[in-house]
Amino acid sequence: MKKIGLLGGTFDPPHNGHLIIANEVLTQCQLNEIWFIPAYVPPHKQKMNVTKLEHRVNMVKLAIESHPSFRLSTIEIERKGPSYTYDTIKSLKVKYPDVLFYFIIGTDMVQDLPNWKKIDELIKMTTFIGVDRPGFSFKSKYAHVIETVEAPLIDISSTFLRQRFQNKQSTRYYLPDNVRQYIKENHLYESTRSSPNY
């Protein structure tokens, strides 16, 4: 039976932290593929400004294009509305009944699991894989159902990178060069000041 890991997120922008986590889970858990799932509307970011879908999808495509086991899934974009994991997993299990799905989360998400939509049903539908993130722990009443993976603690966030772009600070080595070039060409994350020096 095929084993696929799911890595959801806003990916605004995708960065090397995402790619390292995905690759560690792929190899340590012996999965066949990792699917990157850009959120249509992240439930926890409904009131925040998020970069247009077209750009976020294009950036993910560029970020993963060189890895033979990484794929893009637009299931949440096609469904529209708030991107709840329960709805995503339910749809995927109907569409791919012969696939085992593993949902990848960071320790920052573990503590919030009790607030997830239909979490008690969700943990029966998929296996959660937890990856360490600096400053967080796996303390949760759902910790016992989470498989843990050790990965290099790369403390990069999309928020951090957006600020670096806006402040015209170097982003080299934080994200793939082709994604950096795309951001430059499409003037993403620019402030109202003069053109950024990437």
Rank of each mutant, 00 (worst) to 15 (best):
H44D: 07
H187L: 09
W35N: 10
H144R: 11
H44F: 11
T51N: 04
K45N: 02
E78T: 09
T126C: 14
L31F: 04
N32K: 03
T27P: 09
Q30N: 14
V110Q: 13
I21C: 03
Y174R: 03
F70S: 06
V41Q: 15
E190R: 12
I21R: 01
W35G: 01
I119H: 07
F138Q: 05
Q46C: 05
D177T: 05
I119E: 11
F103C: 09
S73T: 05
Y174K: 03
F36H: 07
K93C: 12
K95S: 14
I20N: 03
E190L: 05
Q111F: 05
V110S: 12
I183N: 04
T51H: 04
P68W: 06
Y84H: 11
K95E: 14
I129N: 13
L62E: 03
T74Q: 14
M1W: 08
D98L: 12
N23Q: 09
V149D: 08
M109W: 00
K80F: 01
Q166S: 15
K117Q: 12
N115Y: 01
R162G: 04
N197C: 07
E54P: 05
Y198Q: 02
K90T: 11
K90S: 09
Q111N: 13
Y40P: 02
V110G: 11
R193Q: 15
T51I: 04
H144L: 09
T85S: 14
E147Q: 15
A22S: 02
N16R: 06
T85Y: 10
Y84S: 05
Y173F: 02
G5S: 02
I89N: 08
T88Q: 10
I129M: 13
S140Y: 11
K124S: 15
R172A: 15
Q169T: 01
D12L: 06
P97V: 03
Q46H: 07
H144K: 14
V99Y: 00
F160R: 08
K124D: 15
T171M: 09
M59P: 11
R79M: 03
L188A: 01
A22P: 06
T127W: 00
S191T: 15
Y174Q: 03
P196L: 14
P68E: 15
K52N: 15
R162D: 11
L161N: 05
D112A: 10
K47Y: 07
F101N: 10
P114R: 12
D132N: 05
K93M: 14
S73M: 10
K90P: 00
T27F: 05
T85I: 12
M125H: 09
L62G: 07
E65G: 05
V41H: 11
D132K: 11
G5K: 02
N115E: 08
S73E: 07
P176M: 03
P152S: 02
W35C: 00
T159A: 06
I37W: 08
K3R: 11
I123E: 02
A22D: 02
M48L: 13
E33S: 05
S73W: 09
N16Y: 14
P68H: 08
K47D: 14
P152G: 09
I4A: 01
K124Q: 15
E76V: 01
H15N: 07
A22N: 03
K184Y: 10
S69R: 10
D108G: 03
D120Q: 13
T171P: 09
L53A: 02
